[in-house]
Structures are given as structure tokens and as C-alpha cells.
Simulated assay, not measured.
Amino acid sequence: MLLDLNAFETKSSVGTTLPPRRLGTAERLLRSVRDIAGPLAEVVSHAEAPWASITFSGARHTLVLRFAGSDAVSDGEGFVTSLPEHEFRVRGQLVADATITRVDHELLPAPLMEVECEILLLSED
């Protein structure tokens, strides 16, 4: 005997859609960084630490990106040169500083580049 699942009423599944998820500041920043770094970049790590001065508050984001392969390394070199001057658009935030803190290159067994950067976001409130 087979059970007909359509014979049962399922109220929970009728008309229930989740509202769109709002992106947090860190996720918006990561999207911006990925846009600059290119599609071949892999975000290896991301850390966020609160930051404050007498007049401003915000967060310092430390990211490590890996570029594996010759095409990706080429994208990584472009990322290193363009990040410090890039005009970020992160809603509600001002990018006060974006610096490259470390670059590691490997040629063998395959081209690999790892880039660490720090981005200081200040709240516009």
C-alpha cells in the first residue's frame, strides 16, 4: 500500500517564504574586496576587531586572500596595486584606511600568491 502525500494538508509550507536576509557590514565589505580581487581569489580568513578613537568608532578588518594559478596571481598583483586607492562603497561606513600588510609568492609546484590586507571601517553615524 502506497501513501498519497498530497492527501495531507501542510499548512506550514503554504505561503511561507522567508524575508530577504540583510547583509551585515562585514559581508558587504567582503563582497567589495572580492569584486576588486577577481573571481579567482579565495578568501582564506577574515577577522574583525573593534576600533575607536576619541571622535570615531568602527572596526579593523584583517583579510587573507589566496590566488592559486598564474591567472589568479596576475589578479592578485592587480589587487595589491589597486586596493590602497580603491573607493569603497559600504553603506553606513567610511573606509579610512586600506593597506596591504603581507604578500607571499610561491612559484613551485604551481604559482601561488597569498595577500594579507587590513581595512579600517569607521561608522558614519
Results as ranks from 00 to 15, higher is better:
V14P: 03
S74V: 08
L63C: 02
G69V: 12
E114I: 15
P50T: 03
S53D: 13
S82Q: 13
A98Q: 04
C117H: 01
S70K: 15
A41E: 02
R91D: 15
G78W: 05
L40D: 14
P111T: 11
P39E: 15
I119V: 14
F8I: 15
G24N: 09
H61E: 02
K11C: 06
S57Q: 09
S74N: 13
L18Q: 11
A110G: 12
R60Q: 11
F8D: 03
A98T: 07
V115I: 13
H46S: 08
A41P: 07
D35E: 14
D75A: 13
V90N: 00
R89D: 14
E77W: 05
L3K: 10
F79G: 01
L121Q: 00
L108V: 09
E48W: 01
W51D: 04
V80C: 14
T17Q: 08
R91S: 13
P20Q: 04
L83S: 02
D71Y: 02
A96F: 07
R31Y: 06
L94S: 15
T101Q: 00
S13G: 12
H61V: 04
L112R: 15
F79R: 02
H105W: 11
S45R: 06
E9W: 03
L63A: 00
P39T: 12
A72Q: 08
T101C: 00
L5C: 04
P84R: 00
A7S: 13
E124H: 07
S57G: 10
G15A: 14
L18W: 08
A110S: 15
L65F: 07
E87G: 12
A7C: 07
L83Y: 02
L107M: 10
T81A: 15
L65K: 03
A26Y: 02
S82L: 12
G69A: 13
L29D: 01
A7E: 15
S45W: 03
V14L: 13
E114F: 05
A41I: 04
E85V: 12
E106D: 10
A72Y: 07
A98V: 06
T10M: 07
T55E: 14
S45M: 06
F79V: 03
W51A: 09
H86V: 04
F67A: 08
D71Q: 10
P50C: 01
T62M: 04
S70A: 15
G38H: 10
E77G: 11
L18V: 10
E42P: 04
R66Q: 05
S13Q: 08
L40A: 13
H105M: 11
G15Y: 08
F8S: 06
F56L: 13
I36Y: 05
F56W: 06
A41S: 15
R21L: 14
G58S: 08
I100N: 01
R28D: 01
V44Y: 07
P39S: 11
L2T: 13
R102E: 15
